[in-house]
Amino acid sequence: MEIHSKSERWNFQPDLVFDCTVVILKQGDDYFFATSERRETNVNIEDLNSTRIPTENIFPLYQDTLTKFTNIDNGRDIFVKRPSLNAYKGSDLISRTLLQEAQICEQLLASPHENIAHYRGCKIQHGRIIGLCFDKYAETLWERVERGVKVDESCFRQISMGVQHLHKLRLIHCDLKDENIMFRKKDRNDLVIIDFDSCVQHGASLPAKGGPIPNGIDVADFSIDLCAIDRIRSEAVVNGQAE
């Protein structure tokens, strides 16, 4: 058995207090959940009391209506988005979210747009979806700003066009932020919107995971994404990174 991933959980009210370190262990094709009272860097695998995570709670069954990834183009770099098991809390939420994102991506595959990440299909193992495959991109908007590269108006136009395409499909991203916007190349300005695990149909219930919601909004609405674009632009201006 080996450590697959670790992350710290914190309580934010009333003060920021360390809660525990979540540890995901892996043995063969099985995953195990454990917590430790120690900080992440001090976790000792021998001290952990782990429990097996039911496979159906993290990896949904593949459905014939979904696209199966087949790497027919070996020269193209592919990014496999896998579910974050550190968020596991004893339910099948991770599995349901992964399946929902795959279904959303099928809509995007049927109606592609240059400012939306190119989806390639589901990665399947033992009849279950273990990840979603996309073209690999160079860097996020956040990483570009961190490099000190200014963002010009064409970038915001592209973000808006990508969002407009989603909205034409009656989809709300619900988690638009600079970490979910990526550039194809480090030396180019053409970008795509990524990460659709919070994306839902217009009028649907708000996702459990997502970005800030405007006041008075209690279901998925176009204004969520439009306010997010304004927020991204404002933050870039404040940080002196917008031209």
Rank of each mutant, 00 (worst) to 15 (best):
M1S: 06
E2P: 04
S7L: 10
N11C: 11
F12Q: 10
F12T: 12
Q13K: 15
Q13P: 04
Q13S: 14
L16A: 10
V17T: 15
C20N: 15
C20R: 13
T21I: 04
V22R: 06
V23E: 00
D30V: 05
T41K: 15
T41C: 10
N42I: 11
N42P: 08
I45L: 13
I45C: 12
E46Q: 11
E46T: 13
N49T: 12
N49R: 13
T51Q: 15
T55D: 06
N57S: 10
F59S: 06
L61M: 09
D64P: 14
T65M: 11
T65F: 11
F69Q: 04
N71Y: 14
I72C: 10
G75V: 13
G75I: 14
R82D: 10
R82W: 02
R82N: 13
P83S: 01
P83V: 07
L85A: 06
L85I: 03
N86C: 09
Y88G: 00
Y88C: 00
Y88V: 02
K89R: 14
L93H: 15
I94V: 14
L99Y: 09
L99V: 10
L99H: 08
Q103I: 13
C105S: 05
C105R: 07
C105T: 07
C105N: 07
L109S: 08
L109G: 05
S111R: 09
P112G: 07
P112T: 05
Y119A: 02
Y119T: 03
R120V: 07
G121D: 04
G121R: 00
G121W: 02
C122K: 05
R128F: 03
G131W: 04
F134K: 01
E139N: 11
L141G: 05
L141E: 01
E143S: 11
V145I: 15
V151F: 05
S154N: 14
S154P: 05
I159A: 05
S160M: 09
M161R: 12
G162W: 00
G162Q: 06
H165M: 05
H167A: 08
L169Y: 03
L169S: 07
I172E: 01
H173C: 02
C174P: 04
C174Y: 03
D175Y: 03
L176P: 03
N180E: 01
I181W: 05
K185G: 09
K186G: 14
K186H: 12
K186R: 15
R188Y: 06
R188L: 11
N189A: 12
N189S: 12
D190H: 15
L191C: 09
I194C: 12
I194N: 01
I194H: 01
D195Q: 01
F196G: 01
D197T: 09
D197S: 08
D197N: 07
C199N: 06
G203P: 03
A204R: 06
A204Y: 00
A204C: 06
P207G: 06
K209H: 14
K209W: 11
G216L: 05
G216M: 05
F222E: 13
F222R: 10
I224V: 11
D225E: 02
D225F: 04
C227K: 08
A228L: 03
A228M: 04
I229W: 02
I229H: 01
I229Q: 00
R231A: 04
E235Y: 12
G240W: 09
G240L: 02
A242F: 12
E243A: 10
